[in-house]
Design a protein around this nucleic acid. Sequence first.
DNA 1: AATACGTGGCG
DNA 2: TCGCCAAGTAT
Length: 368
Amino acid sequence: MKNNEPFYIEDIDIQAFQHDLITWFEHEQRSLPWREDQDPYKIWVSEIMLQQTRVDTVIPYFQRFIEQFPTIDALAEADEDKVLKAWEGLGYYSRVRNLHTAVKEVKEKYGGIVPNTPSLISKLKGVGPYTAGAILSIAYGLPEPAVDGNVMRVLSRILSIWDDIAKPASRKIFEAAVRELISHENPSYFNQALMELGALICTPTSPSCLLCPVREHCKAFYAGTVEQLPVKTKNKKNKKIQLIAAVLTDHKGNVLIRKRPDKGLLANMWEFPQVEKSSLIPSRRVLNDYLLEEYGLEVSLDTEHFAEINHVFTHLTWDIEVYKGMINSEVGETEELKLVPIKDLKNFAFPVSHQNIWKSYIKIAKGL
DNA sequence: AATACGTGGCG
DNA sequence: TCGCCAAGTAT
């Protein structure tokens, strides 16, 4: 055993480990829509969707997305608004804007063929070390590591690695481990099996060690430390932001919506106008003044808000007071500010927070 | 390195 | 109710 190694791999029977892991995967893998073929584009789309997102959530999105944008060309030629709409509700919307950018680049620079080398594929927007390895191994059969949260959890237990997996630097340790362990005969199944094992057996809490196909190779199983691994430091508490929003209609029943900035939170998504609450000035007046100053809009707002929407993001919380109002002046429509018929709202991509605002509005409008 | 970036499910 | 989590990446 070497003291300068971050993990001890000498007493792992690599051949047997690969065999047990891959054989298990061949029998037990779930039937998933992105496993029907090895089209690099579909693998790519699935890997982007699956970032920080559960399989059950992704499945229907993946099916609709591929139906709507079946090929690199189809996605490359689509309008961003349609692409964002297809992603509505999935979260982390930069993922799909980066994917769109990258797909256009693949069409233009690589003739529509997803590059098959680590250096070229890693240059694509939104393709980091994990996604690069996943596409290269699953679609192209190359022996590259694809280290995600599952792989770090599984390998931290098998190899008894006590580095904090919340630290970015730790990923390199696990990549080094995968380079030692990966099957060169079937890198695709090896990587997928590691992730599938993490999803089905080697779960974060109460793992099913007695059903594990590789428990004989697992240091934590023998040491009784499975429940203590992986080491992962906690997140900080998130910030709370108080907002006031307005659902504004004209006398024809059109609704006022605006597009968010093209950077940052919920970039390029649509929303009902909203502004930060003030601790000193009454909300109704803040909203009234904001609409006048920002858009030259004269409105008559209800005396009281009709809903309060609480929305929790990963790093912050929105608490939104929502007012109804009538528009009394002309609206200067732009690319970012539109007055749209209610039946057309479904064509615009809204974050879940504002979908909930609309649901509340409909309830009130129906007199419930 | 640390933080921004969504959402829904679960104990 | 609430923190944690789930196939990460960009800056």
